[in-house]
Design a protein around this nucleic acid. Sequence first.
RNA 1: GGGUCUGUAGCUCAGUUGGUUAGAGCAUCGCUCUGAUAAGGCGGGGGUCGGAAGUUCAAGUCUUCCCAGGCCCA
Length: 1065
Amino acid sequence: MFRSLNSDVSFPNLEERILALWEKDDAFRESVRRRPATQSFAFFDGPPFATGLPHYGHLLAGTIKDIVPRYWTMKGYRVERRFGWDCHGLPIENLIQDELKLHTVKDIRDHGVGAFNEACRAGVLRYTKEWRRTVSRMGRWVDFDNEYKTMDLAFMESVWWVFQQCFEKGLIYQGYRIQPYSPALATSLSNFEVNQGYKMRQDPSVVIAFPLECDAKNSDRDETLLVWTTTPWTLPSNLAIAVKEDLEYALVAHEGHKYWVAESRRLQYFGENDEVIDRVLGKALVGRRYKPLFQFAPLMSEKQYAIFAADFVSDSDGTGAVHIAPSFGEEDFQLGKAEGLGLWDPLDAEGKFTHLVPDWQGIGAKDADKAILQKLKSDGRIFRHETFEHSYPHCWRTDVPLLYRAQKNWFLALDKEITNADRVTKTLKQWMIDSNQQIRWVPEHIRDGRFGKWLDGARDWNLSRNRFWGTCIPVWIAEDGDMLCVGARAELEALTGQKVDDLHMHVVDVLTIKTSDKKTFDPNGKAYTRTPEVLDCWFESGSMPYAQGHYPFENREALEEHFPADFIAEGLDQTRGWFYTLTVLSAALFQKPAMKNVIVNGIILAEDGQKMSKRLRNYPDPNELIDRTGADAIRLFMIDSAAVKGEELKFSEVGVKNITRAVLLPLWNAVSLFTTYANADASKGQLTWKPGQNRVSGNELDRWILSDLQALLARVKVEMEAYRLYNVVPALVEFVDDLTNWYIRRSRRRFWKSENDGDKNDAYATLYRVLVEFSKALAPFLPFLAEEIYQVLVRENDPQALVSVHHTDYPVFDASLFDEALNAKMALAREAVVLGRGLRAERNIKNRQPLRRLRVVARSEAAAAGLRSLEDLIRDELNVKDVDIALDESSFVQYQAKPNFKALGARLGKNMKAVAAKCASLSHEEIKGILEGTPLALEEATLTAEDLLIIREVSPDLAVTATPNLTVALDVAIDEALRLEMLAREVVSRIQGLRKESDLTVTDRVDVSLTGVSEGLRGAVEAHRGYISAEVLAASILVEGPENGASDTLEVDGETARIFVRKVG
RNA sequence: GGGUCUGUAGCUCAGUUGGUUAGAGCAUCGCUCUGAUAAGGCGGGGGUCGGAAGUUCAAGUCUUCCCAGGCCCA
């Protein structure tokens, strides 16, 4: 009736079978469809780049993204899960550049932006097949057929709409920011790219002489200010000099000139004998003017070529005076902005000097260093020229040193006020901060820690990239500076009079906007040209909630239903990434958070604690590992770790295998046991119970395991609703242990007993019910194994059953099955057994040796009553004839006492120590008195039983042990009858071993023969012939019979025999 | 340099509002059980709870400083 299961199961093969089954039944889509559309649980999936292959970080996030939606699906919600792809941006552009051998931006333009973009479009999805295979193989249910791509027309149109919304709220502006710039690539780089490219480099270290102008105050002084720089190429762009206001500067006479230098740096450049003429604070120099080095830059402000005060100036290097070129450095830029110096940048896109600096026109900035220094030397402006080595960022692709350079960019302003629908006005940043407070973060500390702090310090978002393959910034600018922001394809069509079916640069930029009313095309209207940048691709992923459904052009109601998301999950690295961009844009558009619950996973390290590195090969290939261990084990290993609360995880294959051994195999064996015996009993006609039938069992074990299951379900519910996945797996593992190592272990004989009685059928009914319910509880976590169990136990027996365990409802706590008192007394009985086993081990008495009596002393009448009802279990498990449960332990323990600090501490305060000492010296009788209800009055306090913790000292001569809950004493005397029984069991054990060796089935009958039998063994066989026959299904037992069949030698306790076992017939 | 998380047995990690002798799993060694189990059970060894100071009758837990590592930012 049940499929018979192989005990040497291959989980990877099992999983492949289940995958095929799901495919056949269209199980995923059906699991979504069968839940009502009106009750939805919204999940957003962050789009990965398809230019790389999935790694363990993706598997971890993917598993979390699978478990939570599966759970809520089974709870009755419709959980749509669309996969998405991040298609734009540098990863794919770089790849295509390499493939087409286009090294620079100019190469791309020469090749043609259209051809380049089409190559990106054609190439970006190259690994999607591998992704789909790996993600599906991990058991993740997600819709790949209906995936969204950030390069789709509909997606891009929604992004335009998002941008336009921001534009219309006045959040978008153009401004300058200093950025690392690669002259070879003719583009600025992200911080991430910069961090990859730090290398040691030799640069000039030069001190330049700037003669100060004479003015009314300083008419007769011929003075020179010494200024330090390591970037001579920025000197033609020098517009100012900065000193520190409260730093002391000295005027030094040297070789007929007078030099200003920071006093603390003086001896670096001058001798002790060089006379100091004057000392002033930096502020005295502020405002003085100097003679510029070159005449290239135009005069842009009154203040040009003057000295300013700035806090960033330090005297740890150089001269205490800093040259300022506002276009080429963050601090220079800030100072220039504050003082209104203007920007002057004489470099072209490839970082070469333009006609603005004719002396070095066509020479790259860094390459011009030498020539510039030579010119300055001949002009007598070099005071000192050295070389030094330092770590400096280089272009990670071309190895060329980067330039820090002011770039014009589009920004999203965070300090702009926005009024929401309820007429509440706050700045965008404040809306973001408030949104964050409404999000449940796991782990919690992210909210006010990493993410909260990042929001507090957030600066305006630079949205523009000077690249090609991306969503165009939809702003068109007329010659007079008038701007026009387009937010829809139809708008662009109206303004150009052209049909538009792609929003990429090479398509959009050939169109001309001509308009008089900013709404319709007018050939005589004003001409507008698009700003050349594309959007940061993070703007696109942040727009994903709206763009994946082409909002607001389509799916208007769906968005309102699905926003904010109920749940998202990504790695810790997304704090500044997707989590941030989602938050910015949802605050800008709707003044709400984009999600309600977030699980943040930590990074996965290799087993050695280092980053996983292809070069070091310190981790197994994910696909190969899945083939070796199966996906279920990997899933459970990852989820049963702090990685699901943002901490790092050292990934180890051993850890994965441990999961298989500790959880998957025992559970599998439990199912296999069930099917084996149920099939055997069914064929013998002894199975009156039918699958699916629930029976009310009077057996305490049955009631207990069902009650224990309810406790598990209650616990899982609490943890899943709090998104604490890391607390769920330990609970599941404990239940597997309860089921296999107690329920089944203790129930084994109930399945085996040949009598066709109610108890056996109760056992089948209970085990079946527990396995089926548990498979449902497991389904989100171990989707394959849970499915297999469900298929074997339910679907293959019942054509009417739901096709997949993942279509069933998640089991809910059933109060009628829950019995807290039963759970407590079973725990106590198990504790008694553990203590008893300990005593046997201590006395070196093996379990096969029956003993007369175990005495268990409980601490209360209720506990004793509970234990009495479970006496049989304890007796059986410990192999004793008699279990005696009592309340008085004083005959075998001596009491000692320790104070209950928790109870007494609050009451006693400083007297605690004195009382603790007195407690320690209480006598056995005093303590007994207190335990029996007579309080003991001390100077400081009156002690009752609650104030003491009793320590039970047991005599080493007695086989007694005690815990706070129980005292257990074992009668270790072995008489002849007990010894014979032990020998009989040894015989049984040996015969069972031979049966197993001979691959007999559990129902085969055997003939047994013993030869060379010693006297004790002979006695044991005679005395226990009936018992032995029944245990081993022996048709005959012959002493000194024929030597036929499988054999083994028995040697135990001085007794010997040879045993022969042969199948009957 | 700033932010944040982490530091407990050989390894991986629990450890509640501060309160008994700091626990588990793995590994290891010894013993043991088995008519489901490549399993199970019992025991041994293994800890200055990263360091220091403070608060407290009492600190793995709270505070401060320091050290080490990770991540993010500069």
